[in-house]
Structures are given as structure tokens and as C-alpha cells.
Design a binder for these strands. Structure first.
Length: 918
DNA sequence: GAAGTCACG
DNA sequence: GACGTACGTGACTTCG
């Protein structure tokens, strides 16, 4: 059977106007109500194929303000205020929208939309059709009967007789006209009977049956105001009855059959959506979901008003949350920030979420406040589950860009709650890709630099030290000011960076390397790596015993106890008490006692105190391993997962490398046998293995490519040992000693060589070091040239660039201080090489998961990155297949953006632990 | 919080 | 003639 949907367009637009925020389209025209109307039509159109969906549909509008009711009663709707100024231009747009959907739009002179709806409803019902009136107007509820219901699209509910009974105290739909007549309507100026509201009206009708019976019974009622009013205003009640009656006796402007739905042509709808810039709907129509969002140009950035913390809203009910989500869907982007109980995203409790849509249009949604002794009273908050369900839809909506500052954190927090945020932009990464080397990228610093705004300091909100409170204990007013400010500032920064990225040539590295990496890193952090606690505890105990023994021996040799860990005391003991030779270093006037100095002392077998020095070196090594690794790592194991979850910083290293904190898993020992045991504590789950894949000599290979050194390029192409080759070229023979020296020189080149530095490393004179450097430049032409070009570039432009366009700024390149300047020069020579290497492994990481998935290796988990190494955990049986994919991805990570003239080599190892995988 | 030291690439 | 010498990180300890 046909099902006719009659859309009360006029009713909808008023409700939408008051309920939705004041949106404007790309032309600056107000379109809030139109947007709401368009999304509603969309939803209805989507229901076409549903079981109870429409087969016929029409939109009914009011034609003019004068109707037959004004002839009945000249005061009808007389006091109604004119529609708001910014609603008026939206009326014609409603017609545009309806036409865009190719729906019939019906309006008739002298009739209200309600009457036309009633006519169509009756006609359809008479033919046995079902009818749904898309409205929640109480007058239209009179029409409800079997086969006809109302559909309140704003609250997504069907309204039937039960709803009328519930709202009007037991009244049936066919009695509603009488109730409405008695109670009147102040908005439409239907007079009714004074003193009679819905409750009294319903009671009277239920008691007496209908209006006339009520009026007839008035005389017999007990004396009182009600009786008097009913008698005195009986005629007004009868007039009201006529006014609220719906006329269904006029001819249908268009026959029912013509309302049949015939599908919605694409072109007019697209044109309409494009005209208004309704991005999210365009996306649904089939535009690319991840198309870059244009920078909002309508408001020049300079005209952004200053941050006004008093304008922020605290969102405490679902309706309010819906409002924010609606605007986000409309404009296609939103700034997001989460407040939590901890800076460790993998263990943090969610305390609240803040959102920003425009400068100063920001809110805070408290979700986990209260619940402690300190804040005994739990404030009004949306139920976390309900709020997260709403937020999930928004966060996962492919047509809404989520903007955050260090969004990786929020991705992890929400990821732990089943929300897979996408698409995204991150202002901390944007800032890094624009301004690495110029300043930090924390929000407070960026707000001060770019917005001349000083953010509320977190410690001013929660305090410090013993009296520090959790964010969940902060009152909502303060919490809103702090949290919403962060979202607001993030939004403002995003506008600026969004415009700067293409203008400053930073889009390439941002879009190709760093932006897509964020969710990859978030997943790695969430996975963590399993650590064998017992093994670490065993090592700790072992080290503790040895340290204690060494301490006793050191004190005995030194002739008395002192704090070995104090460089100052140790220096005094060695150089004063024991009389070893060595010089002061540093401004603080403390003897240098670092490992190179102590090893120098230890080499002199005959010097007094050699034994002491050797014991101290051993003590130092074990103390370091115990305190930094075997003890600390145990404390870092997440009790819930049994794994260690590091946090990677994408902006920590100026060159574009990642850095790793809490704990740092990029400096787990490997170079010494005793330290290496710590790696054995990083293990795979039963049935799995650890796979470590590392680039072989990647920085030297890149140097060979970038400096265009034929001999080196050939050597890499042939798979030769590059340090041996260097030894052959520099010293004419290859042995352990010359190869070691050659290796040192190769690294020295990468790091920005100085004759003194190399001399110190090789224990030769600066002149001899210079001779080696000269010979190197001679044998490997291109290197010297590359270094000179790099320096010229950085002096001229202030920054270096990687092959992928990543910039690193070096403001000190112009320093008057020679030391500073030379330091900047060395760093500038290194940055393009180290940075390109970082770009390449990042690209490999971005491509790794899709490549593994495509190969049916979805169970292979990428866990760690250590600059030139990726660590995976995978089922034992997948090793061969995974190795192939991993190698392939890593070796080809530069292409097609960059074509290298050297191959990239990857070595792979596997084992039950990280240590065994090397 | 600075300085010194040392773990990694 | 002095400067103070390799690039990039983070964590721990001592000490003022």
C-alpha cells in the first residue's frame, strides 16, 4: 500500500530556526534553518526503501499570512511578532531546497499548510493509504487515527494516539480539537476560555465528551471562576473551535498520484549543496571524503575577536550537545580537546571533552567530574555512555574534520573508548612542519606567539605539589574556561596554519608524511610491548649485588666513603685525593669525570688509582642500567595490559625524528653485552615472535645520494661494506683499525665535521685529522660541495630542507657568537640527512598497516620505532610472509615522491625477544 | 631546575 | 688570539 509523507515545511523551519545555531553559508547568508531542513529531507529520502518508508511525498508550505481564519476572527495570529530578520531570507530557500530534492511543493492561497495537509491526509486515508505527517505541531495531532501518525524528525520519534494521551492527560486525537478550543493558544491568539489550560480543558472534555456538552453543563457546575468563565466566554470557545479545526473540504491542488516519489536526480541537488557549501552533505552525495578542507576565508583572521572565556558554554544535556554536533556537520570541521586524569593517554580517565566551532564559539562537556570526597556533590553531566555515543558519530563522521592540538593523545583516549577518530588535522604537527627550530610548539607558547593570547596555565587551575587536584575535582565554571579555551585556541591556530601550509611549501611533508602518521603512532602506543617483569627483577637484584660490592671496593681504594654518583665528589677524589692528572672543565669548575675521561685515565696502567677508575666505570654502568632500565621499566608496566606503552613525540626532534618518552624505548641498551640482557626482557606473547627490521646504513646511503658521490653510490649498489671501502680509499688497506677509523670519519661527515672533533675521536692531532678530511673530500667528490651548498642555503633562507620538503630552521646560523654559529652549521649539515631518513621511515610506517592488511597479515602488529628500525610482534607462522611485505614497504618507502640513486637495504631478524631478534 | 652523565640512533 | 669542538634525543642523580 502507498505511504504518503506530508512534510510541514513551515512548521519545521520555525522550530529549526530556534533550535539550531545561527549558521551561515559560504556567502554569509543565514542558513541554519535551511540546513536543518535539508538534512531532514535527506533523512526522509533515505527512508524510501525502508519497510514503512514513503512511496509518495510532498512538502506543504504556508502561502500567505491572510487565511479564511482571519475572516472568522480578525485577531487571529494578530499579535504574532514578525519572523526574525535572519529567518526571513530562509523562506524562499526552503522552496529551493525542496526543488533540489525534486519534491512537489504545495501551497494554496487562503489556506494554512495545516489545512492542505489535512485535505491530503483525508484523501489518502480514504483510498486506504498510510499517511505520515512530518511535523510535531499539536494542531495536526487532531488528525491522528489508525493509519496516520506524526513524525517528529527533530527528536526522531513517531507520534500516535498514545503521545496525545500522554501530553493531554488522556485525551483521544478526535477530542483534541475541543481541548484546543477550550485552552486557546496565546501564540496564534486563539482566545479559548480564560483560566482554562490544557489540564482543565482535558478534564472537562473527558468528563463531558465534547465542547458543546461542556458548555451546556456549565450552568450546573459548582459556583466559581471556572463556571463563570465558561458561561461568559462560551461564544469565544465556539469561535476557537472553528479556528482550530482543520479544513479538509477543498480540492487537492495536485492529485495524489502526482506525489509519487521517482528518485532524486543528482545534478540539482548537487548544485544546491554546492551553492550553500553544505560540505557534509556533498560528501554523502559522493564527493571525496578526505578532500582537504578549504581554509575558512569569510572572516579575515586579523578580525578574530580576542578570546572571551565568558562566552564559553558548559554542555550539560544531550540537546545542547546535539546543537554543537549539528554545526560541526554543517561546516565540516571542529576543534576537539579531551580533559583527562593523566598525561598518560593509555591509562587516562576521561573527565570531559571540549569543542570549538568558531573563535569564541566553544564549549566544554563535563563527563567525569565529581565523585570524590573533595567535590562531594556530583554536578549535572550528560551520561558518559550517551555522550560518547553521540561523540562517536561525530568523531567518526568522514565529512567532519577533527582538529586537535597533539591529537594523538585524544585519539588514544577516545580509541580506548571505541572511537576511531577520522579525518584529522593536528596543530602541533602543523606548527612543527612550518616552524621547526624557531620555537616550541606547545599550545601556550603558540597562543602567545601567534594570537598574542596568554592561556590559563594548567597549574593555576589544579595547583601544584601536595595540594594539586585532579581535573575532575575542578568546578565546572573554571573547568569550562580552561578546557574550552584550549579548543578555541586550537581552532584559531588551525586557521592560521591551514593558510600557511601551502603558502610556505609545507603541505607536502604534512600531508605525505606527518599527518597520516598520527593515527599509526596512536595505535602503536595503544598496543605497547610485553615486558617480562621477572626477568627485569632478576637483573635488578643481580646488578644491586654487584653495585654494592663495587661501592665497598671503591670506598676502600679511595680511602673513605663518598658519593660515587656525585661527579663533584668523584672529581675531588680522583684529581685531588688520588692525584690523578686531568683538567678542570666547564664553568662550574668541576672536574670532568665522564666516560671518555675515565677511560683515558684507565688506559694509563701505571697511574695510581687506575683500579679505582675501572671500578667506578663498572659501577656507573651498572647503576645506569639498574636505575634507568631494570628498575624503572618494571614500574612502567601497565597493570591492565601487562605491557609497556611508550609515548612518541612527533615534534620532539628538530630534524623530524620521533622521540620516545615515559619510558624512552629508543635508548634500550644493545651496545654492551650486560646492557643487551635488558632487551631480552622485551618479549612476544606466547605463540608469537618479535621481528626487528632495520635500515642498513640509511644515513650514509642518503648522503651518497644527496651529495651525489659516485664511488659511494656504486658501493651501495654493489652491496659492498662501506666502511671498508672508506678505509681502502683513505688508508690504502683494510684492517680492524683502519675500518674503525673509517667508520668514525664517515659519521663525522654526517655530523658536520671539525678537525678538532675528529682529532679527539681518533686520538690524532688536528692537523692529521684535517689531512684525513682533505683526503676524504678528494676521494669522494661531492661531499664538500654538498656541505657548502647546504650552508649557503641555510644562511640565505634560514632553514634546511629534506628530500620531502621538511624544513628545519636555524636562526643561530647568523649568530655573532662563533660557537653558537658553528654549532648551527654542524646541525644544518646533518639535518637534511637525518631528516630525510626520518621522513622515509615515517612513510614506511604509514604504508605498513595497509600493506600488511592487503597481504592478509592483519595480525602483524607494529610496536616500536627506533629511528632506523621497526619492531613487530606477529604469529610465528607469519614470519616469512610478513618479512617479505615489511622489506618491500621499507625499501620502497621513498617512492614515488622521491627517486633515490642508491638502494635502501633492510635487515630483518626474529626471535622470542627483542634481544634475540637482533 | 641546572648540570653532569650515559643509554640509544 | 679566544672560542671549545660531532648530529639528534630522554632519564636519572646530585646539589644548590
Amino acid at each position: 500500500m502507498p505511504h504518503l509523507y506530508l512534510v510541514d515545511g513551515s512548521g519545521y523551519i520555525f522550530r529549526a530556526y530556534h533550535r539550531l545555531p545561527p549558521l551561515t553559508n559560504v556567502h554569509g547568508e543565514p542558513v541554519g534553518a535551511v540546513y536543518g531542513y535539508t538534512t531532514m529531507l535527506w533523512r526522509l529520502a533515505d527512508e524510501v526503501h525502508a519497510a514503512e518508508g514513503p512511496t509518495h511525498m510532498a512538502v506543504i508550505l504556508d502561502k500567505s499570512s491572510k487565511t479564511f481564519r482571519n475572516d472568522l476572527y480578525d485577531q487571529y495570529k494578530a499579535h504574532r511578532p514578525p519572523p526574525p530578520e535572519d529567518l526571513v531570507p530562509q523562506f524562499p530557500m526552503i522552496r529551493d531546497a525542496t526543488r533540489a530534492f525534486s519534491l512537489p511543493c504545495i501551497e494554496t492561497e487562503g489556506l494554512e499548510a495545516d489545512d492542505i495537509i489535512a485535505c491530503y491526509a483525508k484523501a489518502a486515508l480514504a483510498q486506504g493509504w498510510s499517511v505520515t505527517i512530518v511535523s510535531s505541531d499539536k494542531d495536526l495531532m487532531q488528525l491522528i487515527e489508525p493509519g496516520l501518525d506524526l513524525y517528529d524528525t527533530m527528536n526522531n520519534r513517531r507520534l500516535g494516539a498514545e503521545h496525545v494521551a500522554e501530553k493531554f492527560f488522556g485525551i483521544a486525537p478526535n477530542q483534541l480539537g475541543d481541548v484546543l478550543a477550550l485552552m486557546g493558544d496565546s501564540v496564534d491568539n486563539v482566545p479559548g476560555v480564560p483560566g482554562v489550560g490544557p489540564k482543565t480543558a482535558a478534564k472537562l472534555i473527558l468528563e463531558h465528551g465534547d465542547l458543546e456538552s461542556v458548555l451546556a453543563a456549565a450552568e450546573g457546575m459548582k459556583k466559581g471562576k471556572l463556571r463563570d468563565n465558561l458561561i461568559e466566554h462560551a461564544d469565544m470557545a465556539r469561535l476557537s473551535r472553528e479556528l482550530v479545526s482543520l479544513r479538509c473540504d477543498v480540492a487537492l491542488p495536485e492529485p495524489l498520484e502526482d506525489l509519487e516519489l521517482k528518485g532524486i536526480p543528482d545534478a540539482p541537488l548537487r548544485a544546491f549543496l554546492e551553492h550553500h557549501g553544505f560540505r557534509s552533505l556533498l560528501t554523502k552525495l559522493g564527493q571525496v571524503a578526505d578532500a582537504p578542507v578549504p581554509a575558512p576565508a569569510s572572516v579575515p583572521m586579523e578580525e578574530d575577536p580576542p578570546c572571551n572565556l565568558d562566552e564559553y558554554e558548559t554542555v550539560q544535556d544531550l540537546d545542547a550537545l546535539d546543537r554543537w554536533i549539528t554545526i560541526a556537520r554543517h561546516q565540516g570541521w571542529i576543534a576537539v580537546d579531551t580533559e583527562t586524569s593523566s598525561t598518560d593517554a593509555t591509562q587516562a580517565e576521561l573527565v570531559g571533552v571540549s569543542l570549538a566551532l568558531h573563535p569564541n564559539l566553544a564549549c566544554y562537556i563535563p563527563l567525569g567530574h565529581g565523585g570524590t570526597d573533595l567535590l562531594a556533590e556530583v554536578p549535572v553531566q550528560i551520561d558518559v555512555k550517551a555522550a560518547l555515543a553521540k561523540l562517536k558519530d561525530l568523531m567518526e563522521d568522514p565529512s567532519v574534520l577533527k582538529i586537535g592540538h597533539n591529537l594523538k593523545f585524544d585519539m588514544i583516549v577516545l580509541g580506548e573508548r571505541g572511537i576511531d577518530m577520522a579525518p584529522h588535522d593536528d596543530t602541533i604537527v602543523m606548527s612543527f612542519d612550518l616552524d621547526a627550530g624557531l620555537h616550541g610548539h606547545g599550545m601556550d607558547e603558540l597562543a602567545a606567539t601567534h594570537l598574542s593570547h596568554s592561556c590559563i596555565a594548567f597549574k593555576d587551575v589544579v595547583g601544584t605539589g601536595k595540594t594539586q587536584r585532579g581535573f575532575h575535582e575542578i568546578d565546572l565554571k573554571t573547568a569550562t574556561r580552561y578546557a574550552a579555551e584550549d579548543a578555541d585556541v586550537t581552532y584559531r591556530l588551525w586557521k592560521r596554519f591551514k593558510a600557511r601550509l601551502p603558502a610556505e611549501g609545507a603541505t607536502r611533508v604534512y600531508e605525505m608524511v606527518d599527518r597520516p602518521l598520527i593515527p599509526v603512532i596512536a595505535r602503536m602506543e595503544r598496543r605497547g610491548i610485553k615486558v617480562d617483569r621477572e626477568r627485569l627483577a632478576g637483573l635488578s637484584a643481580e646488578f644491586a649485588g654487584q653495585i654494592a660490592g663495587l661501592e665497598t671496593e671503591v670506598h676502600a681504594l679511595a680511602g673513605g666513603p663518598f658519593t660515587i654518583g656525585s661527579p663533584k665528589q668523584l672529581g675531588d677524589v680522583l684529581f685531588e685525593r688520588m692525584g690523578l692528572k686531568g683538567g678542570r672543565k666547564g664553568k662550574s669548575g668541576v672536574y670532568s669525570t665522564d666516560v671518555t675521561e675515565l677511560e683515558r685515565l684507565a688506559r694509563d696502567k701505571d697511574a695510581p688509582g687506575v683500579d679505582l677508575v675501572r671500578k667506578v666505570l663498572e659501577w656507573r654502568q651498572l647503576s645506569k642500567l639498574k636505575s634507568t632500565y631494570t628498575d624503572a621499566l618494571q614500574a612502567q608496566i601497565n597493570p591492565k595490559t601487562g605491557r609497556v606503552h611508550t609515548s612518541y613525540s612527533l615534534t620532539g626532534a628538530q630534524t623530524g625524528r620521533l622521540s620516545s618518552t615515559e619510558p624512552n624505548l629508543q635508548n634500550i641498551p644493545i651496545r654492551t653485552e650486560v646492557g643487551r640482557q635488558i632487551r631480552d626482557a622485551f618479549v612476544a606473547e606466547p605463540g608469537n615472535v618479535i621481528l626487528a627490521a632495520d635500515y642498513s646504513q640509511i644515513e650514509l646511503r642518503l648522503a651518497a645520494h644527496m651529495a651525489d658521490v659516485p664511488a659511494l653510490r656504486e658501493a651501495f649498489a654493489n652491496g659492498d661494506d662501506i666502511h671498508s671501502l672508506t678505509a681502502q680509499e683513505l688508508f690504502g688497506e683494510v684492517n680492524r683499525d683502519t675500518r674503525g677509523r673509517a667508520k668514525t670519519i664517515n659519521f663525522a661527515i654526517l655530523y658536520g665535521i671539525s678537525r678538532w672533533g675528529l682529532a679527539g675521536r681518533l686520538d690524532v692531532t688536528p692537523d692529521e685529522a684535517q689531512a684525513m678530511i682533505d683526503r676524504y673530500f678528494e676521494r669522494f667528490p661531492g661531499v664538500n660541495r654538498y656541505m657548502a651548498d647546504t650552508l649557503e642555503g641555510v644562511r640565505e633562507r634560514g632553514f634546511t630542507e629534506t628530500l620531502f620538503g621538511r624544513k628545519t630552521h636555524f636562526p643561530r646560523i647568523k649568530s655573532k657568537n662563533q660557537g653558537e654559529r658553528q654549532g648551527a652549521e654542524r646541525a644544518a649539515i646533518n639535518a637534511p640527512i637525518q631528516g630525510t631518513s626520518a621522513d622515509i621511515i615515517k612513510r614506511a610506517m604509514v604504508r605498513m598497516e595497509p600493506a600488511l592488511d592487503a597481504a592478509g597479515l592483519g595480525h602483524v602488529r607494529m610496536l616500536l620505532q627506533v629511528h632506523d628500525e621497526l619492531v613487530f610482534e606477529l604469529p610465528e607462522g607469519d614470519v616469512d610472509a610478513a618479512s617479505t611485505v615489511i622489506c618491500e614497504v621499507m625499501e620502497n618507502a621513498a617512492t614515488p615522491a622521491v627517486t633515490l640513486t642508491v638502494p635502501l637495504g633492510v635487515d630483518i631478524g626474529t626471535g622470542l625477544s627483542w634481544g634475540a631478534a637482533h
